[in-house]
């Protein structure tokens, strides 16, 4: 399978990545090579096979609905790129 530039562009947008026009071809061919590798999967009949999500087929544990972590807002926000009065600052999203 060969991905065209438009598809590469769409995938990049889904992943919130900018790919320069000059690099579209390179990414397209590298991603296509990976997808070609992956295509070997298609040849195998997997009807009736359960997908394996965990080596032990363990299900997620439930825990008691109790507070286990204290408030560490100041500590966590100290490493934020931009915060003020306990809030994370981002560009305006609503006019």
């Amino acid at each position: 399978m060969a991905l065209d530039n438009e598809t590469v562009h769409i995938i990049a947008r889904l992943a919130r990545l900018n790919i320069d026009d000059s690099e579209l071809e390179k990414y397209g061919s590298e991603l296509s090579n990976i997808l070609n590798l992956v295509e070997q999967m298609e040849a195998v009949d997997t009807s009736g096979v359960e997908p394996m999500t965990h080596p032990f087929d363990a299900t997620l544990r439930m825990r008691a609905d109790e507070i286990s972590e204290g408030n560490q807002r100041e500590k966590f926000q100290a490493i934020a790129p931009s915060s003020e009065n306990g809030l994370y600052l981002v560009p305006k999203v609503i006019d």
Partner: peptide, 12 residues
């Protein structure tokens, strides 16, 4: 970036 894009494609 390549792996994120492959993953985003596979999950799209």
């Amino acid at each position: 970036k390549r792996r994120i894009m492959i993953g985003a494609y596979a999950l799209s």
